[in-house]
């Protein structure tokens, strides 16, 4: 590494020694306010956002989660979808990808309002002194596939709707079962999504499933950190296109002592973060890029977040010591 100027070094030290949890809390809060209430300030960042800025939050949203328009587009009649409308699908995906590569899965760890709510529920549980749950390795290996299954269904069902195989009442299928549809509008006083739609059997099943999953979400997120992210099809979609992303999570295996601190603080229980000392690009499909692993690492330079190849947050011994007891809290 080239020797940097004293000012730049001071800036790096300030960033590396930051009270990470505090910083992340305020960052998430600001993002939550922006994307749940930004619409009241006429902020509109479009409908291709790579996180759960729920489109059902009619008044307050500052943008719309890409999964909503994607499902709508895919449920167009096949004759249109596979002709000129297909170009709109491709351009929509391109805009989504452009948003995504900017922060990679950092959208999940720092911006996603539904992820923030899960972190708040975790914080509440911790304050109540209730211990959290973990998966066994066998459960982890099985459950991690669920998000890909949901992603496949999220694409296939709208295609089936467009082809007349399924009822339009099922559209958009993932949104109908997504907890964000029920929970995020509630923050603007809109409880209209807390309903079961009896207008057709398909609508009834989907909305009942949505309510059930929302209840599961609340219980699950209370006892399990980032419970829903484990099953999130957006997370699966992120991972499939994450290669060109600018924000990366890097690991220097030669500096890792395999103390396991990073694994202990990982909300997603990703074991590779501690065990893998060969790969430099350490982000896995379950990772939310919350960077808590970087903050909890006591080895200087063992873990780092880079943006376009430039280190922006790096593990340091001094930072670790400073944060001990205040920031990352082990095992909670």
């Amino acid at each position: 590494m080239k020797a940097s100027s004293p000012r730049l070094q001071a800036l790096r030290d300030a960033v590396n020694h930051v009270h990470f949890n505090r910083f992340r809390f305020w960052f998430q809060l600001a993002a939550f306010v922006l994307f749940v209430y930004g619409g009241y300030l006429a902020i509109d960042l479009g409908s291709r956002l790579p996180f759960f800025a729920c489109g059902y939050n009619q008044e307050g949203r500052a943008g719309v989660c890409y999964l909503l328009p994607l499902q709508h587009q895919l449920s167009l009649p096949w004759a249109r979808l596979f002709s000129y409308a297909g170009i709109a699908v491709l351009t929509g995906f391109l805009i989504f990808a452009l948003w995504f590569i900017f922060l990679n899965k950092g959208w999940c760890g720092f911006i996603c309002p539904l992820g923030t709510i899960q972190d708040w529920l975790t914080s509440l549980r911790r304050r109540l002194g209730i211990r959290y749950s973990t998966y066994s390795h066998g459960q982890f290996a099985q459950l991690t596939k669920v998000k890909y299954l949901l992603l496949a269904l999220m694409i296939l069902i709208p295609l089936g709707i467009g082809g007349g195989l399924f009822s339009h009442s099922m559209s958009p299928p993932f949104c109908l079962i997504c907890p964000a549809r029920m929970i995020l509008p509630m923050f603007t006083g809109d409880f209209s999504q807390f309903t079961i739609d009896f207008s057709s059997s398909a609508a009834m099943v989907m909305t009942a499933l949505g309510i059930s999953i929302t209840a599961l979400f609340l219980v699950g997120s209370f006892v399990k950190k980032r419970f829903f992210c484990f099953f999130c099809p957006m997370s699966a979609l992120h991972y499939l296109i994450s290669k060109p992303a600018l924000l990366k999570l890097k690991k220097d295996g030669s500096k890792c002592t395999r103390c396991g601190d990073c694994y202990n603080v990982c909300d997603m229980e990703i074991k590779e973060i501690a065990d893998d000392i060969k790969n430099t690009n350490i982000m896995t499909d379950d990772c939310t890029m919350c960077l808590k692993c970087v903050a909890s690492c006591p080895e200087t330079g063992a873990l780092k977040a880079t943006f376009a190849g430039i280190p922006i947050f790096e593990s340091t011994e001094a930072g670790f010591i400073k944060r001990m007891g205040k920031g990352v809290q082990h095992g909670k």
């Binding site: 807390f194 309903t195 079961i196 009896f198 207008s199 059930s212 209840a215 599961l216």
Partner: peptide, 21 residues
């Protein structure tokens, strides 16, 4: 609002919440 039911949603939601809890 045709055919929408808050009561059923609340009932189903609370039942699953309680059951899971």
């Amino acid at each position: 609002t045709d055919y929408l039911s808050y009561a059923w949603a609340l009932g189903v939601g609370m039942a699953i919440l309680l059951f899971c809890g």
